[in-house]
Design a protein around this nucleic acid. Structure first.
Lengths: 191, 191
DNA sequence: TACATTTGGAACAAAATCGTCGAATAAAAC
DNA sequence: GTTTTATTCGACGATTTTGTTCCAAATGTA
């Protein structure tokens, strides 16, 4: 089971899925993009959904890495939270498969997407809660409930996603808006 | 036969075709985007190909209008030719359905696309030849063969399209490059 | 009411698609 | 060089999707 070939397929599939969406992408499309025969895909993946899952997992991993990099370089909790929100929203505006997976109506019907959605939501809440707890320890934030607050922030971000999906505003405009919102959030939180 | 509904369909179809390409766009997609039932489309168009033809014709008309506007505002043949090439390439980089129709491999197999391709090529050659003739009359250009030269210029542009399609460079970069090429062309032509 | 225009639900043949199977080929191990 | 293992692909069946037609219903119009 060559990890190389597998990765090759995942990356090719990522491009095609991003271009056409899950439904309109065929296994033939992916195979062709990966330079393989269709049936070869089934040597590495059980089915189309599993390919998509792998693509999303790959993107999520990259996103996590990117977020961690940004968080590590900023040293106050305020900056960390700001970095987190910025990267998350930028990624979202760029519309990767992860974002699609988390939002596409068609995909919402799939059970496996529900799993991804819930898993990722848990991850995000944990991530944000970690930052908030750090802020509390550093006395940057009031001694609020970290889990409750992180859920609130996440919900707030999701709220911002909705108009992003329907109306196609420029990325900067949207990021500015959510930054303003996050600022408002800060001034309510900070000591 | 409400021209309104027809136009509505053409515009909706344009968006969908641009997003998914001819093959991946279904009549259902178009109908949904136009807010109609699938079978209603057949009241206005004979089949899917005819819808696409109408979309391409619509875009071509817009492109022609845009080119004419630009050409009318520039008063030397050199400027006109430069405007022409710029707008044409800009449009191409933006990848409308016209551009897709002229290049997509899948579409190339269709007879009806061949018709569009040939029609449009003739139109372009005529257009460029007109500018060149004007340049010759104004003594901006040597007394060259206008038809022959315009074919050469068109072929040159098409040559530039190929790497544009495969590698996704930025639009500015490509336009700069072709402008340089056109400049070279000028210095060979100008008196 | 009578007539023309416009719409969409149901039906269907043809095409596309997913996923399987077994054979072919390449790589590795012996 | 032969056996074994890993990988690829063509062909196929079952199922779904899609382009297109037909007709009845709805809507406008005089």
């Amino acid at each position: 089971m060559s990890a190389n070939s597998r990765q090759q397929i995942i990356e090719a599939a990522g491009i095609i899925f991003e271009r056409y969406g899950f439904k309109k992408t065929t296994m033939d499309d992916i195979a062709y993009a990966a330079g393989k025969g269709k049936s070869s895909l089934y040597y590495y993946f059980k089915n189309k959904e599993e390919v998509f899952e792998a693509v999303v997992a790959h993107e999520a991993k990259q996103l996590v890495a990117e977020i961690n990099r940004a968080i590590d370089t900023s040293h106050s909790a305020v900056d960390k939270l700001r970095s987190y929100v910025n990267i998350r929203m930028k990624r979202f505006v760029e519309r990767g498969n992860l974002a699609t997976a988390l939002n596409d109506n068609f995909l919402a019907t799939f059970a496996f997407i529900e799993k991804i959605q819930n898993n990722y939501r848990d991850f995000e809440i944990e991530m944000i809660a970690g930052i908030i707890n750090e802020g509390i320890n550093r006395k940057e934030f009031k001694p609020i409930d970290a889990n409750f607050t992180s859920e609130a922030i996440l919900t707030c971000m999701i709220g911002f996603e909705v108009p992003l999906l329907t109306k196609s505003k420029t990325s900067e405009e949207s990021i500015t808006k959510i930054n303003n919102a996050i600022d408002m959030f800060f001034y309510g939180i900070c000591t």
